[in-house]
């Protein structure tokens, strides 16, 4: 598979008065055309900062301090401001978590979609408006010719997110970054939006970076997933392998915490003890060591690199990477594949 996007050793830091926060450190992953990679992790693990770094949307006091982001062979970090603007919204589009605040409250959604089109295409305002109506229709918005004149606050949450997706897809991007696209929506609407994203991807073959902390959604939508913890990718692999044979203790813990259907009523729910470390003063060694039950002397001395898994594979052809000195044996953690909708 040819790589559409390849992120290599990305590092993004925030310079605060109390010190440097390494929000994203040595993050590497790649996405092929037509593929969906899910970036999973808890709040503050660096998922959204990674996404924003791809389009260079990090503003002061944040700064991208290293690595490369190759998009169709071009390093986005080396582009000038005019060149990166040509990529934004055109070749790479983004949708956001909260569609109400992500739309400008004082402009109609039509005006905002027209702006997105006319920033990159030389079409008249009238043509762009017609395109906006067509896009809204494709997203399944009823009576789009009227809705296009509505202001964001007049639409329901699901409609707003559909309009946001319409705006993102207006220039037919090759890559869509979806930053928690369904977090602010109710469960039925979540399923509809996910279905819509999958359909659109199948139709135009774009790559997708899906950022979420919802493992059910990952199982439903993504082909591969990268698990982030404390600003680093700790495990990456195909969905079926990751969900059945997780190697990193953190991934295993995450999966155990959502697989609660087999538990008898009244039993305590499984959890990972402790809490995520502060990124302000990174500890030496593995960031997860404090909470890990397989902690080892080496874990406190060195940060385990993200390396290709050397265990004999029962999943031929799938590349699996894990950042752990003592990865769990694949057969040691029996976990059923999560297949229910979110």
């Amino acid at each position: 598979m040819s790589e559409l996007l390849s992120v290599h050793k990305l590092a993004t830091c925030f310079h605060s008065r109390r010190g440097i926060i390494r929000a994203v450190d040595e993050v590497s992953f790649s996405i092929a055309a037509g593929e969906t990679l899910a970036l999973v992790g808890e709040s503050g693990s660096g998922k959204s900062v990674t996404a924003a770094s791809i389009l260079r949307l990090i503003s002061a006091p944040g700064r991208i301090e290293g690595g490369e982001i190759l998009f169709q062979g071009q390093d986005l970090l080396k582009l000038g401001t005019a060149a990166i603007r040509q990529i934004r919204g055109n070749r790479i589009a983004m949708i956001f978590q909260e569609p109400l605040s992500a739309f400008n409250p004082v402009q109609s959604i039509g005006t905002q979609i027209v702006e997105a089109i006319r920033l990159h295409r030389k079409v008249s305002r009238k043509q762009a408006f017609e395109q906006a109506v067509t896009l809204l229709e494709r997203m399944g918005i009823p009576s789009p010719a009227q809705r296009v004149h509505e202001f964001p606050h007049r639409l329901s949450g699901g409609m707003r997110q559909r309009a946001m997706i319409a705006m993102a897809l207006s220039c037919e991007p090759d890559l869509l970054i979806a930053d928690e696209p369904t977090t602010a929506l109710d469960v039925t609407t979540q399923a509809q939006i996910l279905e819509l994203l999958k359909e659109l991807q199948a139709a135009n073959g774009m790559g997708m970076l899906l950022i979420t902390h919802d493992l059910g959604m990952v199982a439903e939508t993504a082909h591969r997933a990268a698990v982030m913890y404390a600003g680093r990718v700790v495990e990456e692999g195909s969905i079926d392998r990751l969900f059945t044979a997780a190697r990193h203790p953190y991934t295993a813990g995450l999966l155990a915490s959502v697989n609660i259907e087999a538990l008898a009523p009244g039993t305590k729910l499984p959890e990972i003890p402790g809490s995520a470390p502060s990124l302000l003063n990174p500890v030496q060694g593995c960031a997860f060591a404090e909470r890990c039950n397989a902690r080892h002397a080496l874990c406190d001395k060195q940060t385990p690199p993200l390396a290709t898994d050397t265990e004999p594979e029962s999943f031929p052809g799938s590349r699996h990477r894990v950042a752990c000195f003592l990865p769990a044996r694949p057969d040691a953690i029996p976990l059923p594949v999560e297949s229910e909708a979110a």
């Binding site: 924003a52 055109n90 400008n104």
Partner: peptide, 26 residues
Amino acid sequence: GADFIRTARAKGATETRITLFHALRN
């Protein structure tokens, strides 16, 4: 600092456009 300014940037709008049409308007 608003989300819709980030959206406008992600659309590829110039800083002048963001200042006049999005930030100042609000």
